Computed example of a mutant assay.
Amino acid sequence: MRAGATTKILALALSTATLLTGCSLKEPPRQVAAVDRGEPVAVQELSDVPSLEGKTIGIAAKDILHDYSRVVYEQIQQRIEELGGKAIATQAEAKDEKHLANVENLITQAPDAIVVILGDAQTLTPALAKVDEAGIPLFTIDFQSEYSTNNVTSDNWNIGTTLARTMAEDIGGEGKILVFNGFPGVTPCRIRYESLNLVLKDYPNIEKITPELQDKYEGTIEDAKNQIQDQLRRLPEGEVDAIWSCWDMPLIGAAQAIDPLDIEGIGLYGVDAEPGALDLIQDPDSAYQFTVAQPTKSIAATSASNIARYLAGQAELVPSTSYAEPIFVTKENVEQVRSDNGI
């Protein structure tokens, strides 16, 4: 069953406002005040945030290979500069060792703070311990760390469970699914995958096809396309009811494998609202059913504002985690979401 009742409820019930909270499959969301401590935070006016004049902020991003990472990377630099600060920006081209080296190189430049955007916890934690030892405040985006003063992230438990429940209900609570699972060390993907497994406990008639598929950062779309083509050749016709991924890029490749064959009954479910994914969701003939837009500009602005407050001696105003609520995108609401959010 494709684009079932649950998806239609989502399209009607979920607002496309940038930051929301309290939403579920059947419950309309409420708006959030910008100053809610530890709650989703709206982009605040620059007049509400202390100046970063004379401050240098180091930025270490894992990559800018997909739209989410690129926009966050660009926007946090812009926000720091708008607040009067200087940004030293590095990105590691999705290479873990280069990401680690970039962090260590920033330490030698003794910035007033360092921001880390995404990363593999096992690889990066030793470098973050060095940041702490150097007495440099560490801020993170989509990266949970014991050394982080503040982590700005989407509510990935909400994303993960809603993604999984929507998929499960769209296929009628039974069938077989293919799962891309290549990044257990990346916090958002780990949470979304754990949420999938948690939700599937309530859907015992849904089976994950094993072995799970391994996605990768470089050449993602073509690699995923090839993997799905192999699966379609290997598995009996009608064996696959849905394909899940913690991000959109593999599913763009999956759609490239499935859509030309005009196969009915396979739905694709991902996260990030990549422009290519939104184009496919907007196409009524594509298998792509569902993605989740994250408020990238607000995530970047919130991180910069928290840095400014902390460096201005307002640490009591900086929560350990700032949550940004997601926007759920379906075939029914995709045009409205794109129009409202400029994506």
Rank of each mutant, 00 (worst) to 15 (best):
T187W: 15
R309A: 15
G119S: 06
T123S: 07
I141A: 10
V186D: 13
P295K: 12
P40R: 00
L118I: 11
Q289F: 05
I76W: 12
Y193D: 08
G173A: 10
F139A: 13
N306H: 03
E97Q: 14
E146D: 13
I263M: 14
S69P: 02
F290I: 03
V292D: 10
E27K: 03
Q78T: 08
T108N: 09
D262S: 12
S286F: 06
G85K: 02
A42Q: 11
A255V: 11
S24Y: 01
T187R: 13
T7L: 04
K176L: 06
Q122A: 15
G172V: 14
P126Y: 11
F139H: 11
E212H: 04
V318N: 06
Y323R: 11
G4D: 14
A61D: 08
A11L: 07
V35Q: 00
R70V: 07
T90K: 13
E332A: 14
L278Y: 04
R30V: 13
K208S: 12
P284G: 05
I159Q: 06
G185E: 09
S154P: 14
P326W: 00
A134R: 03
K201Q: 14
A224F: 07
V179N: 05
A3Q: 09
L128M: 09
G253A: 14
I80Y: 01
Q229H: 04
Q31L: 10
G119E: 07
I263N: 12
G313L: 13
E335S: 05
G342A: 15
K297I: 07
I159L: 08
L251G: 10
I307S: 14
R234T: 08
Q44A: 11
S286M: 06
K201F: 11
E27Y: 00
L138C: 05
R192V: 04
A11E: 13
L14K: 03
L213Y: 02
Y310M: 01
P326V: 03
E332M: 09
I88P: 00
K26H: 09
E222M: 10
I206K: 02
S148G: 04
W244T: 04
Q282G: 07
N150P: 09
N156T: 11
I159W: 05
A61S: 14
I281A: 04
K26E: 08
L268D: 02
A61C: 11
I281K: 08
E39R: 08
E332Y: 09
G238V: 03
D259E: 15
D223L: 04
R30I: 10
D170Q: 08
R338P: 01
K8I: 00
N226H: 12
N197T: 12
L128F: 07
N306E: 08
A304I: 15
E93Y: 13
Q75W: 00
Y203P: 04
P319M: 07
G253K: 12
P326A: 04
V329H: 08
F143P: 00
F183L: 13
I117M: 14
D285P: 07
E239S: 05
D96T: 08
C246S: 15
D155R: 06
T21F: 01
N150G: 03
V71D: 06
P211R: 04
A273Q: 10
D67E: 11
L19I: 15
Q294L: 15
R165H: 10
P50H: 07
Q231E: 10
T321N: 02
I59N: 01
